[in-house]
């Protein structure tokens, strides 16, 4: 066998491989452009800006201050206070949405007449844009002409109109309520998808064994819903942690900064105060916090045999 005879198939393989590689790059190009252009490049710019003292969007040569913005941020009581409010918002809204979402999912999974109608209606709050939702709830809670005051007065529950959004802690809880009203249907649909995947035979077997509703729920429904719950927990935690629009439209961080969560405070720092360097450092803090939360959840969830993640 001559050496030429050996080399020819190799050259052919090599040529085919190059064509395949080029084709692969071509196919990947849109994804690469999207990931690097829309995700990684802005992230890189944010990191870059966070290392400079940028006090104007038009400053051509801001001073490099290294980790100065990060140190300033960590020393700021306002940042820690807004982080505390963010954790409160995240934990409480997630708990409310999970409890009500699960109850709603169980109802929608029950053999009701016109179940399709209920399943359709329940989507409406989720379909409403957040800004519209916030404006609606702001109107409902208005101290002077709000629907809630009118309703409670008509029912004789209150005698004087209540300024619902004028006390910091109460305002935060009412913003959570408005957020939960919109988002609970989404949670319910995730959990409903999980519920429909549970084989009915298991429930029949449990009923034969004489298990009551509560025991069936604890022993069958809840464990088999863990994959769906885990997805909901991760998604909603990330979303709740970076909550911004409902705060902006409902309370603008007030009263007395009582609803100034970290995303809102970051926005104010960057755009209202024109401290873009500090704002970028705070944005990186949000990225880091969400990454840590996600990793922690995923680690916890992976310990569960039922987890999909």
């Amino acid at each position: 066998m001559s050496t030429d005879a050996v080399r020819t198939p190799r050259r052919r393989r090599s040529s085919t491989s190059r064509v395949q590689t080029r084709f692969a790059w071509l196919l990947l190009a849109p994804a690469i452009l999207t990931v690097f252009g829309v995700v990684l490049f802005p992230l890189y710019r944010t990191v870059l800006v966070s290392l400079f003292d940028v006090r104007s969007a038009l400053d051509p040569a801001p001073a490099f201050i290294g980790l100065g913005n990060y140190i300033g941020m960590l020393q700021s009581p306002s940042v820690w206070a807004s982080l505390g409010r963010t954790f409160y918002f995240t934990v409480v809204s997630l708990a409310v949405e999970l409890v009500f979402g699960l109850a709603l999912a169980l109802l929608l999974n029950a053999p009701l007449r016109a179940r399709w109608l209920f399943r359709t209606l329940i989507v409406i709050p989720w379909a409403i844009p957040t800004i519209v939702n916030a404006a609606m709830w702001r109107g409902i809670f208005n101290a002077q002409y709000g629907a809630l005051n009118a309703l409670l007065t008509q029912l004789g529950v209150i005698h004087d109109y209540v300024p619902w959004l004028s006390e910091p802690w109460q305002a935060m809880n009412l913003v959570i309520l408005a957020d939960a009203w919109k988002t609970t249907p989404l949670v319910a649909f995730f959990l409903l998808a999980g519920l429909t995947g549970i084989p009915h035979e298991i429930y029949e077997a449990a009923a034969v064994d004489g298990l009551g509703w509560w025991k069936r729920f604890r022993a069958i429904t809840l464990p088999l819903l863990v994959p769906a719950i885990s997805i909901v927990v991760v998604l909603r935690t990330v979303e709740a942690f970076k909550v911004f629009d409902i705060i902006y439209a409902m309370t603008r961080g007030g009263p007395a900064n009582g609803t100034a969560v970290i995303s809102y405070y970051t926005y104010v720092t960057a755009f209202s105060d024109q401290n873009f360097g500090m704002g970028s450092a705070m944005a990186m803090l949000i990225v880091l916090a969400i990454a840590v939360l996600c990793l922690t959840y995923l680690r916890l969830i992976r310990t569960s045999d039922m987890s999909l993640l």
Partner: peptide, 15 residues
């Protein structure tokens, strides 16, 4: 891509 994006503009992108 990142380097290309960064090249030729200041930190803020302003002239």
């Amino acid at each position: 891509l990142v380097a290309a994006g960064a090249a030729g503009c200041s930190v803020t992108g302003a002239s």
